[in-house]
Design a protein around this nucleic acid. Structure first.
Lengths: 106, 106
DNA sequence: AATATATGCAACTTTTTGGTTTCGCAATAT
DNA sequence: ATATTGCGAAACCAAAAAGTTGCATATATT
């Protein structure tokens, strides 16, 4: 099984779950209430999210609260880093290009 | 078909393609040379990436150069924004907590 | 103790995906 | 002109994923 963060956030329902529990821990049932799918389907998504450590569980009596492991989200940010460099320097490159054109056409 | 950015970057080969052409435009053949798959498989990935506007093509004679549309990558960054807020304030919360502990144990 | 609730898990079905093979088309080279 | 090269598209296949149904288990509630 692949089971990495990128595959985990590929599913729109899972992204919605992540956003939902980002601010406060929730139980599977209350999470499922927000979607048109069955509780079991949500449960499966939760399992996938748990497996790649994007969320964590906390048992409280017979209820299980799921919450986001925000730290893990930083891995996506880390991957984006390489591109952020590009889109930030692209402005500079444009400047350089314009400067070069100015020089050579002189 | 779903075909959104998150689904596009879910595949590791596609992520590698993105990184590969991020700095310079490349033809399907030269891209495929970097992987163990066939040109056609890469071609399919390129189509998916094109469909969600993550990359763009430029015909040059009989060759087609693919390059990254870096702007589109910002959409991922935009989605991360909501979580970045959380993980940034979490530090402050931690600071507050540490401050409180310091105070109370003194 | 009996029942209701919250949940996970396994089996099964249906889509979706990633890949290969084959084909056809357009541009270039001979 | 004819052959070669660079591509995309369609047909097909195997594997994976998403969802459903039907339990099993643990904890509340009465």
């Amino acid at each position: 099984m692949r089971r990495d963060i990128f595959q985990a956030i590929a599913d729109p329902t899972r992204r919605a779950i992540i956003a939902l529990i980002a601010l406060q821990a929730m139980t599977p049932n209350s999470i499922a209430d927000n979607f048109n799918t069955t509780r079991q389907a949500v449960s499966k998504h939760l399992r996938i999210l748990t497996e790649c450590e994007l969320i964590k569980q906390e048992q409280k009596g017979r209820e299980i609260y799921y919450s986001l492991q925000i730290e893990k989200m930083k891995e996506i940010d880390k991957w984006l880093e390489q591109f952020r460099k590009i889109w930030e320097t692209r402005f500079n490159q444009l400047d350089d290009l314009l400067a070069t054109i100015k020089k050579t056409t002189k």
